[in-house]
Amino acid sequence: MPSKTSPKPIKVVLVEDHLMFREWLGEMLGREPGFTVCGEADNIQQGLRIIQQTAPDIAIVDITLRGSSGLELVKDIKAHGLSVPVLVLSMHDEALYAERVLRAGAKGYISKSEASGTLTEAIRQVLAGKIYLGEKMTTLMLEKISNPRAIGTTSRMDLLADRELEVFQLIGRGYNGREIAEQLHLGETTIDTYRARIKEKLQLRNAAELYSRAAQWVQENGG
């Protein structure tokens, strides 16, 4: 009698900067039949390297990482021609980030507040070639498509480009211009340009208003 071979486990890379949450995520997936964690990272450079080395079936990426954001990692994966699908897992508001991560090349967005069973279902949907979004965000995007001129559907935060939003978040976390430049591997003059654009788009009069608004946003959104 020919022996039955077990299906190959689904290889998952975790890119998450909170060690405790990453450990919990790894343990949770390890208990699920058919999953194995083949690599972990807490920043985009290490994350990209591990994805290239291990060729996982899927990468689960947090928005907030050490240094540049997970959004930049999604773009890097696409730029390097890697076919690994990405599911973004984050505590941030779906309405602000979900559309951005899909444009960047991710295949889904799920909130950290969801149950573990929802996460495994999201992984399976993405691996099946589908796009995964929560019910709330699916409704918002369908409304946006059906009525793109609807008044009030766009907040000023939506006006920020991805890199501007990243700089805004770092300002809110208390970093100064030099520290932001080091984190993002950019020049200080470039950061100054981003700060000026952010103030203009958010209609902020000065640096004090910028720091106040950014700090408030980080506090409200867990940045």
Score class of each variant (00 low, 15 high):
residue 40 E to W: 00
residue 116 S to D: 02
residue 36 T to V: 14
residue 201 K to H: 04
residue 110 I to Y: 10
residue 23 E to A: 12
residue 192 D to N: 11
residue 164 E to T: 07
residue 160 L to P: 06
residue 139 T to M: 13
residue 194 Y to N: 12
residue 31 R to D: 06
residue 94 E to A: 14
residue 138 T to F: 08
residue 153 T to K: 14
residue 171 I to N: 01
residue 114 E to Y: 15
residue 33 P to S: 07
residue 146 S to G: 06
residue 79 A to Q: 15
residue 202 L to S: 11
residue 217 W to K: 00
residue 67 G to T: 12
residue 58 I to W: 08
residue 131 I to C: 14
residue 203 Q to G: 00
residue 13 V to E: 05
residue 210 L to W: 06
residue 191 I to R: 05
residue 205 R to S: 13
residue 132 Y to L: 00
residue 175 Y to R: 06
residue 87 L to V: 09
residue 129 G to W: 04
residue 17 D to A: 09
residue 52 Q to N: 11
residue 118 T to L: 09
residue 22 R to V: 03
residue 96 L to R: 05
residue 57 D to L: 02
residue 192 D to V: 00
residue 47 G to L: 01
residue 220 E to C: 00
residue 42 D to F: 02
residue 77 I to V: 14
residue 10 I to P: 05
residue 202 L to E: 09
residue 176 N to Y: 08
residue 83 S to R: 07
residue 162 D to M: 01
residue 4 K to Y: 01
residue 107 K to Y: 12
residue 1 M to N: 12
residue 200 E to W: 00
residue 149 R to L: 12
residue 127 L to R: 11
residue 145 I to H: 14
residue 147 N to F: 12
residue 79 A to R: 15
residue 129 G to C: 08
residue 9 P to A: 09
residue 122 A to G: 09
residue 128 A to C: 02
residue 59 A to M: 10
residue 90 S to Q: 06
residue 11 K to M: 04
residue 186 L to C: 07
residue 197 R to Y: 10
residue 66 R to M: 07
residue 135 E to H: 12
residue 49 R to L: 06
residue 72 E to V: 06
residue 196 A to Y: 15
residue 198 I to S: 09
residue 104 A to C: 10
residue 54 T to D: 05
residue 128 A to T: 00
residue 110 I to Q: 06
residue 60 I to M: 13
residue 160 L to D: 13
residue 100 R to E: 03
residue 220 E to Y: 07
residue 31 R to T: 08
residue 144 K to V: 00
residue 88 V to N: 05
residue 92 H to Y: 08
residue 125 Q to A: 02
residue 37 V to A: 02
residue 99 E to A: 13
residue 14 L to I: 15
residue 196 A to N: 10
residue 156 R to E: 13
residue 123 I to T: 04
residue 30 G to D: 06
residue 128 A to R: 08
residue 5 T to L: 14
residue 208 A to E: 14
residue 218 V to M: 03
residue 64 T to C: 03
residue 142 L to N: 11
residue 121 E to L: 11
residue 181 A to S: 12
residue 216 Q to G: 07
residue 58 I to E: 06
residue 90 S to I: 06
residue 217 W to P: 04
residue 89 L to C: 02
